[in-house]
Amino acid sequence: MSDRILYTSNLSVGYSTRTVLSSLNLNLGKGQLTCLLGANGSGKSTLIRTLAGIQKPLQGIVSLKGTNLREVGPKVLAKQLSLVLTDRIAPGNLTVYGLVSLGRFPYTTWMGSLSDEDKDVIQWALEITNTIQFANRHIGELSDGEKQKVMIARALAQETDLIILDEPTAHLDSPNRIEIFHLLQELVSSNNRAILISTHDIDTAIANADKLWLVANNTIHQGAPEDLVLDGRLEKAFTKEGLSFNYSFGRFEKSREMSGPKVLIKGDALGAHWTENALRRAGFQPVLNSQEFTVEVTGTDSNRKWILNAQHQFETIEELLIKLNTL
């Protein structure tokens, strides 16, 4: 493949005392957002540090654009690969602009003064990450989500074909998480870049990745997220006692004894979906036909009503559940 930016052959990573992951033959292609998905402590960070050249591989090679990573000098490497790490380092007195301009480090003179071209790149990085409106604020005044966007802008200012992000959304709430992933997706599709993100967040990875690197049993499975879901490898990788993978919701759940009262749910797809979600949690069994209970969802959006056994009508799912529990 000529459009792969990075590949590994027979790579083993870990520490002198312990091999964490071995026999890795991985590919990162241009224009792809790849998610390295694995449980906490499965060796994601070790792999990322190895791919970024911070740590030496135990065995095998990492090849960046056809050259062994160990033979690429630090200055050349800095123009090909940029990082966003988990370290929550916050030099509070540094401005956003100052931090993003550090990304031009490999391109500037010994004094670090910025040329017009440098300034244009910084401007672009600030605009595309939507951080330009607080470019003059200090890092210490930013929220976690804003900080992460600024760190991404810094990596972008480095103008590299490959960006590696270690758990970029670990400290963020859902809207920020989605915003970051959306931004990364945009960056990967509008340019010939490759982006690798490590995460333990299964839902977000499935929803956003073009490709998954799934850590399981000291090795990595790669493929489209949907393929890994359908052939059961995703479930296997995260299997823990008492947990099962819900294939339609794409998430892991605490397995329950499916012995509760049977409920037939009717209505529009969205309404039925979330009603089912609530009933499962409350211990009911959603089934296709039932003599016990029938719930019918009517209306749309905020006007939905829930009708139980064609007798009782409820404004909310919460009220429906209270009634069901008393029967």
Binding site: R49, K75, L83, D87, L99
Partner: peptide, 23 residues
């Protein structure tokens, strides 16, 4: 003063500094 660019890069920690091409 000649080291000021280096010191600026180190503000982000050694891993970042290294990834930006600092020896």
């Amino acid at each position: 003063f000649f080291l000021s660019k280096t010191l600026n890069a180190l503000l982000l920690g050694e891993d970042y500094a290294q990834s930006m091409g600092l020896n």
